[in-house]
């Protein structure tokens, strides 16, 4: 059995009287990619901040590479690489100078530092732009240097907080490929995201977090099994707020419908065999006076899992 590189036990974090994280426990094995999936404000960044020793847990503890985040911060920090959500770089100096500075902060010096700077520039695919000032880089290039900084000291586990937010699809693809390549070399990764597709594609295991609580963990298959064989039908309507409520009850009255979750102007309906009752559902909605703008049938996925567990759509 592979040894866990990270073990979080009952992590709580309270700000004033509000719990941002409530009893989060999970572990990550060496060489594993683990994603924390949840909407904005779910507690992902607070969790990663506690694991990075930036925040002290109100309760609970975590061990990284055998060291406690509450009592052995320097050893933990030496074992982790952190890629923050924001571009935490000095824009007026070059990519190489940035990496050299951050490398020195990790205690690297001389030839070893230079080797690591060159290696991480290669990983980022920016060796040819090493002397360019960061402020002249595109958003995707900045993100890649942002990741490279987290790899400088050869960490045992990389924490990535929403690494692909706000970048173009091509740069996102490149970053995901890079993470997978690093993982193949044995690097464990803790990735937080609110992109279902990213978690689905990248992760060995996924933890679903909502309102500060980790509500499910497992592989993609294990999580989807929680939903069963249900399809998710997404009906978007041309109605005002009053009328979308009017279609809920007629839909719920259909015996095959397992769950109906209203969104702003769309309704998510979970049914075992969507094709057989599609006509009935359309009829009920039309009878309620609503006009269907679009209809989408989704195979079981993480969106359906989240909906199943929380009663809300992840994208809402």
């Amino acid at each position: 059995m592979t040894e866990a590189i990270l073990q979080a036990q009952g992590l709580h974090k309270k700000f004033d009287e509000v719990y941002a994280v409530k009893g989060v426990s999970f572990d990550i094995k060496a060489g594993e990619i683990f994603s924390l999936l949840g909407p904005n404000g779910a507690g992902k960044t607070t969790t990663i901040s506690m694991l990075s020793c930036l925040l002290t847990p109100t309760e609970g503890d975590a061990k990284v590479d055998g060291f406690s985040v509450t009592g052995e911060a320097n050893q933990v920090k030496q074992a982790i690489g952190v890629v923050p959500q924001e571009i935490a770089l000095y824009p007026t100096i070059s990519a190489k100078e940035n990496l050299q500075f951050w490398g020195r902060m990790y205690g690297l010096r001389g030839k070893h530092l230079q080797e690591r700077v060159d290696a991480t520039l290669d990983i980022a695919g920016l060796a040819d732009r090493a002397d360019g000032k960061v402020e002249t880089f595109s958003g995707g290039m900045k993100r890649r240097i942002n990741i490279a900084v987290g790899l400088l000291h050869n960490p045992k586990i990389l924490f990535m907080d929403e690494p692909t937010v706000g970048i173009d699809p091509q740069s996102r693809r490149r970053i995901l490929d890079t993470v997978q390549e690093l993982n193949k070399l044995g690097l464990a990764v803790l990735n937080t995201t609110h992109y279902m597709e990213e978690a689905q594609e990248l992760s060995d295991r996924i933890g679903i977090i909502d309102n500060g609580e980790l509500i499910a963990t497992g592989t993609l298959d294990e999580l989807i099994k929680m939903v069963g064989e249900y399809d998710t039908v997404r009906l978007c309507l041309d109605v005002d707020g009053q009328k979308i409520e009017d279609v809920i009850e007629p839909l719920k009255s259909l015996p095959e419908v397992k769950q109906v979750s209203p969104g702003e102007d769309c309704v998510m309906i979970q049914v075992p065999d969507s094709e057989n009752i599609l006509g009935d559902m359309v009829g009920r909605v039309t009878q309620a006076g609503a006009h269907i703008r679009s209809l989408e049938i989704q195979e079981p996925n993480l969106e359906a899992v989240f909906l199943h567990l929380t009663g809300r759509a992840l994208r809402d």
Binding site: S52, L54, K77, P84, Q85, E86, A88, W102
Partner: peptide
């Protein structure tokens, strides 16, 4: 505000 201070805080020092 830009995050470099936060990044310095996760360095072993």
């Amino acid at each position: 505000e830009e995050g470099t201070l936060r990044r310095l805080l996760v360095m072993p020092m």
